[in-house]
């Protein structure tokens, strides 16, 4: 049972720091930022994923937890007041394996902001499969490595990017580090 785990030691400043880290990551795609250091996270979540959840999720949004992440459902409900929902209805998807991006809310042409955010826990950032990424937030194309994405990720992402401004955004978490891949990004494997 994970209910007895605390949230941020200082809820106001903890949330602010975690948000700034995510904002930094989203503004600089592929940049690896530290977040949630010292946060005791509920199994199976890493502290970065837990910090994202605490900073961004509350009763005003709906969350889908995948088959593995759902083990932290009690913690999630207790600390955020959110309700769990199906994949297609979710504002946030909390996952340990990349969900079918085409099955998530992608928003509409008028309201693309309704596309989901995926908080995806991966094995490692800065190691593993290598990609070149380019788009807003990057002065020049940059290298990015991540361990824990499916083999055909570049193709999956291309389909997500193709429907821009609709689409979903990815926050990759490993340990106390995260990196973000906004939908505006072009990604190819190298």
């Amino acid at each position: 049972m994970s209910l007895d785990l605390p949230g941020f030691a200082d809820p106001v400043l903890g949330a602010q720091r975690a948000f700034r880290a995510v904002l930094d990551a989203m503004s600089h795609p592929g940049r690896i930022v530290r977040v949630g250091e010292g946060l005791v996270s509920p199994a199976p979540l890493c502290s970065a994923a837990a910090a994202c959840v605490l900073a961004l999720v509350d009763q005003d949004v709906r969350v889908h937890a995948d088959a593995e992440a759902v083990a932290a459902a009690d913690w999630l409900r207790f600390h955020t007041g959110t309700t769990l929902c199906g994949l297609a209805e979710a504002d946030f998807v909390l996952a340990l394996a990349l969900p079918d991006l085409a099955g998530l809310a992608a928003g509409s042409d008028d309201a693309p902001e309704l596309g989901a955010s995926v908080i995806l826990q991966v094995a490692a950032l800065g190691a593993g499969r290598r990609f070149m990424i380019e788009g807003p937030g990057l002065a020049v194309p940059a290298a990015f490595a991540v361990d824990g994405l499916p083999e055909d990720f570049a193709g999956i992402w291309a389909a997500n990017h193709r429907r821009f401004p609709r689409g979903v955004d990815l926050i990759l978490c490993a340990g106390d580090r995260l990196a973000a891949l906004p939908r505006s990004l072009r990604i190819r494997e190298v």
């Binding site: 809820p11 602010q16 989203m26 961004l56 504002d91 902001e113 955010s117 939908r183 505006s184």
Partner: peptide, 18 residues
């Protein structure tokens, strides 16, 4: 804090959709 979270979520989407 609830208002801040709402604004923060909007900001992240704003960055993702320049």
């Amino acid at each position: 804090e609830q208002t801040k979270r709402m604004i923060r979520r909007a900001l992240l989407k704003a960055v993702a959709i320049p």
